[in-house]
Design a protein around this nucleic acid. Structure first.
Lengths: 138, 138
DNA sequence: CTTGAACCTCTAGTCGCTAGAGACATTACA
DNA sequence: TGTAATGTCTCTAGCGACTAGAGGTTCAAG
């Protein structure tokens, strides 16, 4: 059994974040010492690692809740889990697509001005003011 | 002179968002009718278009504040503006990089399970539980 | 037995909006 | 001119996923 600080060190999840996850119902309420401090065991460590890994991959708290629910019922169909993962993948792909468009545009705008002029002539500012100067929709 | 609703239609920025921008100091306080309603002119329309364009490109409210400040002083050096744009570009590139790593990992995980099994055997869930199953750092 | 670090709960702040309540203004039409 | 519908006003609170800080308690080492 170890403290929340120890759990934090091992998982690299900050202490207040661990308490937040407990409050959100992602982590079961931890056992307490007589002095009311949380104590964790291997199971707690594994659950938190799962959560952290999922968060790192961008899953929402809600999605993680569902994944944990499934994890706790190994006999259920895992269709929901694969759906969540796929939808997250689509999300990520959509974000990449959008960001690539932005990258193009920002790179073009940035190249238009080397920063040694005066802002009245700045291509960056002109581009922002006038959407017509853009290459494509974004 | 036109109303906030009209401005909203023309810029595709929602009415409460316009008021929010005013509150944040991005938009100057609008003129008012005798009945206290905001009225805008071409200058207001242009400023809001600028803001919307910058937001679309992912600039923060703070960054936009600085850009507007520069725009209003056409005699100043535009170094700050190009710096803001370049830093935004770097930001976007960093995000793309991270998302691509996530995409790889999510795609690999998703492929590992077609969803017709039982969650006890689900590769999606197993991968989340055990970081060692991952291809690379993320 | 004391000290200092770690822990507790609670509230409020972050960012960029968005939603809703309850009241007032404007506009279109009869 | 009356009235009804729509638009606008201010204010407060909520979203997600934390983070920061206050003020107090408990634990572990020496």
């Amino acid at each position: 059994m170890f403290s929340i600080g120890e759990l934090s060190k091992r998982t690299k999840v900050k202490v207040p974040t661990i308490r937040y996850y407990e409050q959100m119902g992602l982590l079961a309420e931890a056992e307490r010492t007589s002095g009311n401090q949380r104590r964790y065991d291997k199971a707690g460590l594994e659950r938190l690692s799962f959560i952290r890994h999922a968060r790192d991959l961008g899953f929402s708290i809600d999605a993680i809740s569902s994944l944990i629910e499934l994890q706790e019922h190994p006999d259920r169909s895992c269709e929901a889990a694969t759906n969540i993962a796929r939808s997250q993948l689509e999300d990520v792909r959509a974000k990449i697509k959008r960001l690539k468009t932005l990258e193009q545009e920002l790179s073009r705008i940035s190249k238009g001005c080397d920063g040694d002029g005066v802002s009245g002539d700045c291509y960056v500012l002109a581009s922002l003011a006038d959407h017509a100067l853009c290459d494509r929709e974004h």
